[in-house]
Structure formats: structure tokens, C-alpha cells
Design a binder for these strands. Structure first.
Length: 497
RNA sequence: GCCGCCUUAGCUCAGUUGGUUAGAGCACUAGAUUGUGGAUCUAGGGGUCCCCCGUUCAAGCCGGGGAGGCGGUACCA
């Protein structure tokens, strides 16, 4: 064996991450909380596969100006194209259409799972991540939309985020109607909506630039503007300035707002419809005692561009988080949704109204970890039975079996290492206790149990390593027959379940 | 897509004017210690100096090209 083997570098594709025990435990807990809230609202679980036919995922994606990007696709052996799902809504639309005849309508379902996007990852953005969605299909009224908003708010409260988030609500008809009334050409409207969406990032002045000639940011990248005329820019920015967060939502007089901005808006049917829907959602939400510190109207919310047809929602965290370097980070949206009346109509000839929202589980978990709302510490490991004498492994294995039968996570040390290494192993495993039976104990039919948590605590009192070793803190002898009971006692003292 | 920064051991980094077999600290594996976690000492494992081409007697170092990583921006279902 003189030739050197070509080694493969162990690495992950960018935008993908391993999930460690601490993360898994924390996210599982989050998921259970979200499920509880959704089920309380009457939603049922549904699971669809990771792959769908590419045509099923549909024309809402990829973006019209960048086709075939953003999705992981492969060809089946019958040459049909399959894609990994990039959200949980398109698969639901497929499922609903496929099982239309036997589903109750309206159909309420929630889904949780991984979705994939083939695009450049960034901080807090991955190519594989988890979403948690709820949707009501087949209900057209604003009641369904209002319910979504309230459920989002309740979910955030249940996750321990009361007072740290806000659900923002807008309506696509609001801007569609306003731009219609102002005579903005259809090919400019996307640009206008994108500009409006950037309000919290670039401010009202930045939006003004984007509505006009365009804007150059600090990185030197130039964003082409919408080239609106002065009057139209004034109306759009005036509407954005009219975001009034201090009054109860149903107190806002939308029509006087429209008249003040531009009288053309108040006679536009779509604009009026959008405003009326917002007002109805407001009334429903306020009647259920959700105040505007939890749910509020915000005209800068736009969401996806080719997807939503009515109300749109967004959950935003309102506190500042710090990254690993201690710098403040804007976390922004951790979820959102809206009404998408057109999605199911790809599969059926009749219109099917639908509304729903999606929580970015991975993103939300990351935000919670940074604020300490979510435990990031390594979970407690198993009890470790040390192998003091290699020819006695049958005895050690018997102890392990006894402890396991009593429901205690236990393992026997595997390998030829000395006791020192075994203790290091137990330490790294976060073991709450170790069981020691050497010849001394065996002669007297005893075992030694060491409480690793108390032991670590006690060791801090020593400055001298040799002294600490001699003291052997936090350990005691128990009769071999009382092994299980003794270990249970240690676990109970340390609060280990 | 566009802009910027970066790339030498698992991690953080040294590496002289271009000069033999590329180093340190930490981390890792073990021993010293019938049999005790963090200390100390000792030993050991670990490298395509991101890749390719060029200049040169000689390249980790100089020149050109490329790849990858990070950050911003654009897009975001």
C-alpha cells in the first residue's frame, strides 16, 4: 500500500445544512406548538411528496423573466420532468383538484415539510428549508382571510413571542386599483410594487427614487426605476405615508384617504373593492379582540408578484436580533401568505377561491435561537457504563440492559480505551452519570455511580488538578442490586427525564 | 445577475528578497496515573499551500485565467 488513496473532501453543497440534536429537539418542539394552534382552528394535517411533475408546480414559478431557474428538476425514465417542490401551496392545489369530489368544501389543511429552491443562498437563506402552511380552499369571503391573520397571531403568541411580532395585512386590489386609476401601464406595475415592498429597507426617499428614474445602492448596483410621472409618484408615496399604526384598524376612513390622495382612486371599482375587503377583515379581527399591536393594515406589504389576487399578509418580528458577531440583524419576515384565487383553476375549469399562509420554520427557529427563546444547548446524553475490565463486558452489558429496561437511556462504552478516555467520552456525550464497576467494587458486590453534572460543578472549587482527582467529588457506592434505583436517584436530583 | 472582500493542518493564523524536507497555538488520538472529566508532560495522526497555465535554475510567495467561500444588492413562490 504505497500509493496514496485519493481522498474525498467531506463537504456540503452550499445552501444545505446538517441539523444537530439540539436543533432537532428545539424545532420539534416548535412544530408541536404550531400544530396545536392549527388544529384548534379546525385544520387537518396533509402530507404530499417532495417531488411533483414540473407542470404541476406550475407557471406561477419560475418568474416570467427568469424561466427554469430556482427549481431543482430531473427527468423521469419516461422523460417526464419532475421537480422538487419549492413551496407547499402548489402541491396542495394539485391534491385538492385531484380529490375534488370527495373533499369537504371549504377544505382546511395544514402541511409541514421541506421545500427546495435552487438559488443563491444568503445569511438565513438556504436551498433546503422547512415550511409550515395552513390553507382554506373553497371559501371566498374575508372571514377566511381574517381567520388566517388571527391564527398567525395566535401561533406567534403560542411560540412565546407575544408583543414581539406584528401581522401586517394589505390587499393586492388596493394597489392594482390605485395604479389602474392613475393610468400606470401594466408593464410598469411590477416595478412599482417592488418599489413599494422595499419601504422598510430603503425608506420613503428610496421608494421615491425607485418609482422615478431608479436607485443606486451602496454596493454599486443600480436598480431601474418605474419612470412614473410626478403626480403618480406623489399619490403612491402619499398612500404609503398614510400607514397609520396608532388608530384601531376599523377606525381608518379609507375613502377620505383615497380622496385626499387623488379623487381618481375613489371611483375605481377595484380600489374600492380592495379597501372594502380590508375594512371587513379589520372588523372581524377587532371584534375578536385582536388589537393593532398584533394585526394591522400596512400598505407596503406586497408579497409575491404573480400569485396573490386579494388580501396579503406578512408576519414580521419587531425586535432586533444580533448575529454571531454581535452585529444587529434585520430578520424581517418569518412568514406570510394571502388569497390566491387563481391557483386551483389551472386544474379545473371553475374558479376555486383559496387563502392561506406559510411560516418559515427554519428561519423562525434561527431568529428564536438568536434571542434565546429557543434552547440551543446540547440535550442531555445517556448514562455511560464504563468498561473497567475488558473480560467483564458481559457484566456491564447486563447493567446496561437493566437500566434500559427501567426506561433510562444507557450505553456501554465501546472500545479499548483507558478509563481517562472513557470519562472524556462521557463528558463529551453530556452524560448525566457514569457507572463504574472495577475489581474493587466487584469484590464487595458494589457499583460506583458518579453524578457528572454535580461533579463538574464541584470540580470548579479545586484549583489543583491532582487534588481534584484525589477528591473524586459527586460519586458514591451502591449495592450492585440497587443499581437502577441509585441511577434514578441521580437523574432525579439533576432533573433529567 | 451585479459589486466587494477572502482562500496555507479540523479551527485561528505565521511563513523573510522567490531558496532544501512548509510551521505555531488551539483542537484531535493515546500514554504517563491497579481506576476518574478541566491542568501538566510526552508521543502520534493530520497538508494537492484552492485549481490550471505562465515567468524562473528554483513559486506558498510573481503574472494571467478559473473555481470555491463570505458579505451586500437584485429576485423571492
Amino acid at each position: 500500500m504505497t500509493d496514496t488513496k485519493k481522498l474525498i473532501e467531506p463537504r456540503l453543497p452550499r445552501g444545505f445544512e446538517d441539523r444537530l440534536p439540539g436543533e432537532i429537539a428545539a424545532v420539534d418542539q416548535m412544530l408541536a406548538t404550531i400544530k396545536r394552534v392549527f388544529e384548534r382552528y379546525g385544520f387537518d394535517p396533509l402530507e404530499t411528496p417532495l417531488f411533483e411533475y414540473t407542470e404541476t408546480l406550475g407557471k406561477f414559478l419560475p418568474d416570467t423573466d427568469r424561466p427554469n431557474e430556482g427549481v431543482f428538476s430531473l427527468q423521469d425514465d419516461d422523460e417526464q420532468w419532475l421537480s422538487l417542490r419549492y413551496d407547499l401551496t402548489a402541491p396542495l392545489a394539485r391534491y385538492f383538484a385531484q380529490n375534488y369530489d370527495r373533499l369537504p368544501k371549504p377544505f382546511r389543511s395544514y402541511r409541514q415539510g421541506l421545500v427546495f429552491r435552487n438559488e443563491k443562498p444568503g445569511p438565513g437563506r438556504f436551498r433546503q428549508f422547512m415550511q409550515f402552511d395552513a390553507d382554506t380552499v373553497g371559501a371566498a369571503g374575508p372571514e377566511a382571510d381574517a381567520e388566517m391573520c388571527m391564527m398567525m397571531a395566535d401561533t406567534m403568541d403560542a411560540l412565546g413571542l407575544a408583543g414581539k411580532y406584528v401581522v401586517k395585512v394589505n390587499n393586492r386590489k388596493f394597489w392594482d386599483g390605485a395604479l389602474d386609476a392613475l393610468g400606470v401601464a401594466h408593464d410598469r406595475r411590477l416595478t412599482v410594487l417592488r418599489a413599494v415592498d422595499k419601504l422598510d429597507r430603503v425608506g420613503i426617499d428610496g421608494v421615491t427614487e425607485l418609482l422615478g428614474k431608479g436607485r443606486k445602492d451602496e454596493s454599486g448596483d443600480f436598480t431601474i426605476g418605474a419612470e412614473l410621472d410626478e403626480a403618480a409618484i406623489w399619490v403612491v408615496t402619499e398612500l404609503l405615508r398614510a400607514n397609520d399604526f396608532d388608530v384601531q384598524m376599523d377606525d381608518i376612513n379609507y375613502f377620505s384617504l383615497a380622496l385626499a390622495a387623488d379623487s381618481r382612486l375613489s371611483i375605481n371599482a377595484i380600489f374600492r373593492e380592495g379597501v372594502e375587503e380590508l375594512r371587513q377583515i379589520s372588523r372581524l379581527v377587532v371584534a375578536s379582540n385582536y388589537k393593532n399591536d398584533r394585526i394591522r393594515i400596512d400598505y407596503s406589504v406586497v408579497r409575491g408578484l404573480e400569485y396573490y389576487t386579494g388580501p396579503v399578509f406578512e408576519i414580521e418580528l419587531t425586535f432586533e436580533v444580533k448575529n454571531e458577531k454581535g452585529q444587529p440583524v434585520v430578520f424581517g419576515s418569518v412568514g406570510g401568505g394571502g388569497r390566491y384565487d387563481g391557483l386551483v383553476s389551472r386544474f379545473r375549469n371553475e374558479p376555486v377561491p383559496a387563502t392561506g399562509f406559510s411560516i418559515g420554520v427554519s428561519r423562525l427557529a434561527q431568529a428564536l435561537k438568536l434571542t434565546g427563546n429557543l434552547g440551543a444547548e446540547t440535550p442531555v446524553g445517556p448514562v455511560v457504563v464504563l468498561v473497567m475490565d475488558r473480560d467483564q463486558t458481559a457484566r456491564y452489558q447486563a447493567m446496561v440492559s437493566e437500566l434500559r429496561s427501567a426506561g433510562i437511556r444507557t450505553e456501554m462504552y465501546l472500545g479499548p480505551s483507558g478509563m481517562n478516555a472513557q470519562m472524556k467520552y462521557a463528558n463529551r456525550r453530556n452524560a448525566p452519570a457514569v457507572v463504574i464497576e472495577g475489581s474493587h467494587e466487584r469484590e464487595q458486590d458494589l457499583v460506583t455511580i458518579k453524578d457528572m453534572i454535580a461533579g463538574a460543578e464541584a470540580a470548579k472549587a479545586f484549583t489543583d488538578h491532582a487534588e481534584m482527582k484525589a477528591a473524586r467529588p459527586a460519586q458514591f457506592n451502591a449495592p450492585r442490586s440497587g443499581l437502577v434505583e441509585a441511577v434514578k436517584r441521580v437523574l432525579a436530583t439533576e432533573g433529567v427525564k
